[in-house]
C-alpha cells in the first residue's frame, strides 16, 4: 500500500455552469486559485450540472490536481446535498437522471444569471437555458439512496447555514438515515458545529468554500489518504486504517 499523505481539498466549488457563480469561475482561473491554495483536489459541484467537470479535469491535470466530479442536488424539501462520483461518465448519466426530476422550465437568466458550458481554457461553448437552480422532485432520503445505488458519495452541504441545509430545513437528521459525513461552511468551526448540531455526533466533517467566486475557495480540509479517490474519501470520513479528515484553521 502507498504511504499516507496529508492533502488539502475543497470539495465544493461552482463553475460558470451555476447561474449564481461569477464569470471568473472558469477552469484556468479555478486551477490557478487551487494552486495558490495548495489544493490537491477540487470537488466540482454545480447546481444540477456536471457539464464543466471534464473541462476542469483537463485544466487541472497538467498541475497534478485531481477533480472529483460532483453535483449539488436540491431536494424537494430544499436541502442541498453534494453527490460525488468516481467516474465522469457515471456523473453524466446521473445528471441525465436528475434532469428527469427537475421541472421543464427556462432559466430566468436576467434574474438568476447565465449557465455557461466552457472548455478547459474557459472559452464559451454553449449556454444551458434550462432552469437548474430549483428543487428536484426527489426527497432527501431518495437522493441519499440513489447516490448510494449509483456508487457515489452523498454529503449534506453546508449543514450550519440558515438556508438550503439539512438542519435549517429539516431540523435534524431524519430517523433511519445513516450519513457517512457532512459538510460545514467557513462560518463555523468543527467544534462549534459538533456542539450546535448533536446530529453530527462523530460523523466525518469536511469544510468547503461553496465558492461562487475564486476568493471563496478554501484549503482548510486535509485528507490523510494514500491516494485521492472517492473510496479513499469514504475511508477517511470513516477514519479507517489511519486515514482521516482534518479541519485546520484558515
Amino acid at each position: 500500500m502507498k504511504g499516507l499523505r496529508l492533502l488539502a481539498v475543497d470539495l465544493h466549488v461552482h463553475t460558470v455552469a451555476s447561474a449564481c457563480a461569477e464569470v471568473e469561475m472558469i477552469p484556468p482561473l479555478i486551477v490557478r486559485r487551487a494552486r495558490e491554495l495548495g489544493l490537491s483536489l477540487i470537488g466540482v459541484t454545480d447546481h444540477h450540472s456536471v457539464e464543466n467537470a471534464r473541462a476542469l479535469q483537463h485544466a487541472a491535470h497538467p498541475f497534478g490536481i485531481e477533480v472529483l466530479p460532483g453535483m449539488e442536488v436540491q431536494t424537494r424539501e430544499e436541502v442541498h446535498v453534494l453527490c460525488f462520483f468516481d467516474d465522469l461518465e457515471l456523473a453524466k448519466s446521473w445528471q441525465d437522471m436528475i434532469w428527469t426530476h427537475l421541472p421543464e422550465a427556462q432559466n430566468p437568466e436576467p434574474h438568476f444569471g447565465p449557465q455557461y458550458v466552457v472548455d478547459a481554457e474557459g472559452e464559451y461553448l454553449r449556454t444551458n437555458t434550462r432552469l437548474l437552480q430549483t428543487s428536484t422532485k426527489l426527497h432527501f432520503e431518495q437522493v441519499l439512496h440513489l447516490t448510494d445505488q449509483w456508487g457515489g458519495l452523498a454529503l449534506p452541504a453546508h449543514v450550519d447555514r440558515p438556508r438550503y441545509s439539512l438542519f435549517a430545513t429539516l431540523g435534524m437528521v431524519p430517523e433511519g438515515v445513516d450519513l457517512l459525513g457532512a459538510e460545514i461552511s467557513i462560518h463555523i468551526t468543527e467544534e462549534e458545529a459538533r456542539a450546535r448540531f448533536p446530529g453530527l455526533r462523530n460523523l466525518g466533517l469536511v469544510q468547503s468554500g461553496d465558492a461562487h467566486r475564486l476568493e471563496e475557495m478554501i484549503n482548510t480540509t486535509r485528507l490523510r489518504v494514500p491516494e485521492l479517490t472517492l473510496q479513499e474519501l469514504r475511508r477517511a470520513l470513516r477514519r479507517e486504517d489511519g486515514r482521516e479528515v482534518l479541519l485546520v484553521s484558515p
Binding site: E77, L170, G171, M172, P174, E175
Partner: peptide
C-alpha cells in the same frame, strides 16, 4: 408545505 417524516418528529 413540507411532507417529510421530520415534520412528524418535530
Amino acid at each position: 408545505m413540507q411532507g417529510h417524516p421530520n415534520v412528524v418528529a418535530v
